[in-house]
């Protein structure tokens, strides 16, 4: 019983640690925000797309 509880706690701690350190998602459902301006310019040139640039 103690071993099960300890394993559960360990799993929960691991999950919490992953949750806390996981990078903020920039891509969801195939949609991506780029946060580096120069990288965005390069990508737009490579993909021949216009740019939507948001300052906030």
């Amino acid at each position: 019983m103690k071993r099960t509880a300890f394993s559960l706690l360990l799993a929960l701690a691991a999950l919490t640690a992953w949750w806390a350190t996981a990078p903020e998602p920039v891509e969801a459902d195939g949609f991506e925000w780029i946060t580096d301006y120069q990288e965005g310019l390069k990508k737009a040139r490579a993909e021949n797309k216009p740019i939507f640039l948001e300052f906030r």
């Binding site: 965005g40 797309k49 216009p50 740019i51 939507f52």
Partner: peptide
């Protein structure tokens, strides 16, 4: 909106 924004490279500067 998503459909249109996918036609763009979207850059966010904070």
């Amino acid at each position: 909106l998503l459909k249109l924004m996918r036609d763009y490279v979207c850059i966010r500067i904070t």
